[in-house]
């Protein structure tokens, strides 16, 4: 199959499947959350898979998007779809403020983003700022409530995120990012502006977290700071991405389908076994498949997008 066709197929197929899925399966919130994690895992993939920077505080950008969009709806009376875009922009602005963190290496970057996300959380949840952010009392977006429209918006964003990762995988830009990840000094010696390329990856990654957070807020319409700054959102997105295989298009998708699937089958009814199973799965992954599930396919000589 020509690769152009595979690419377009993947990008169109995913949102199309989700768009029709509610007719066959009635747990729409589960489908919605699957899309949320698909996009978040691809967002992690853009920054981690292509530059090697792992943002543990990724949820901070998600929460920033949720609040940016919600406050725009409440105070500026902007239609929700436009507010979603503003949520993406809010995350972009936050990531610009955080961009000096890219000077840190590895673990320090991870920890610093985690701290930054906590700072944003505490600012928003601060009762003294309740006039602006509604503080700990949370947001009520019932004026814009529309589960169908927000669901379809999320499907479009998921397709968009997949498209960007496919583009990165194929393009000169993606190749330059991989060079930066592999050896930043040699990348500079190839004429690559290392700082700018890392920045680009961070911005794309942040944009998707912001859009997703905004759409999530629109979908659930009533939420508290805790629910959109929950660190487990970062952890899930990271684990899904790594489990499937970072740096590929397919990896994060497989990660979400398998692990989020397992979570929903047994995680909710029997949380204690679920924790055990998750722990075992992650340990097995680190020990036997450090490059994710896709490496199983690669070992068989398959070319994985």
């Amino acid at each position: 199959m020509p690769r152009g066709l595979t690419d377009v197929g993947l990008v169109v197929l995913i949102p199309a499947l989700f768009a029709v899925a509610p007719f066959a399966y009635d747990n729409q919130l589960l489908l919605f959350n699957t899309m949320v994690f698909l996009t978040m895992a691809q967002g992690i993939n853009i920054i981690y898979g292509f530059t090697g920077y792992l943002p543990f505080g990724y949820v901070g950008l998600f929460g920033a998007g949720a609040y940016g969009a919600s406050l725009a709806v409440l105070f500026l009376h902007i239609p929700a779809p436009v507010a979603v875009l503003l949520g993406g922009v809010t995350a972009l602005v936050l990531s610009l403020i955080l961009s000096p963190l890219l000077r840190l290496s590895g673990a320090y970057f991870a920890i610093a983003t985690l701290a930054a996300s906590e700072v944003v959380y505490y600012v928003i949840a601060n009762p003294a700022l309740a006039g602006v952010t509604k503080g700990p009392y949370g947001i009520n977006l019932s004026v814009a409530y529309s589960p169908e429209a927000s669901y379809l918006t999320m499907a479009a964003i998921t397709g968009f995120a997949t498209a960007v990762v496919v583009y990165l995988k194929r393009s000169h830009l993606g190749l330059s990012l991989k060079a930066v990840r592999d050896d930043s000094l040699s990348a500079e010696m190839a004429g690559i502006n290392v700082g700018r390329q890392r920045m680009l990856a961070l911005l794309w990654s942040a944009f998707f977290a912001g859009l997703t957070g905004a759409t999530f807020a629109w979908q659930i319409s009533v939420f508290y700071p805790d629910s959109v700054f929950d660190p487990s959102i970062s952890i899930f997105a990271i684990v899904f991405c790594l489990f499937g295989g970072a740096g590929t298009v397919l990896g994060p998708i497989l990660g979400v389908v398998i692990l989020y699937g397992v979570y929903n089958v047994i995680g909710i009814t029997e949380p204690q076994y679920f924790q055990l199973l998750y722990g075992v799965l992650i340990m097995a992954l680190v020990l036997f498949l450090p490059e994710g599930v896709v490496s199983l396919l690669k070992r068989r000589g398959m070319h994985v997008l």
């Binding site: 991989k178 060079a179 592999d182 050896d183 990348a187 500079e188 010696m189 004429g191 690559i192 290392v194």
Partner: peptide
Amino acid sequence: ADERIRLGISFMTEVGVFSNLSVEENLFL
């Protein structure tokens, strides 16, 4: 540094290649 390279200088370090990338990708880079 990257601006100097783009003027038409090529620098081969002691390592010389990106070892995690394919031969083809190395050439492209």
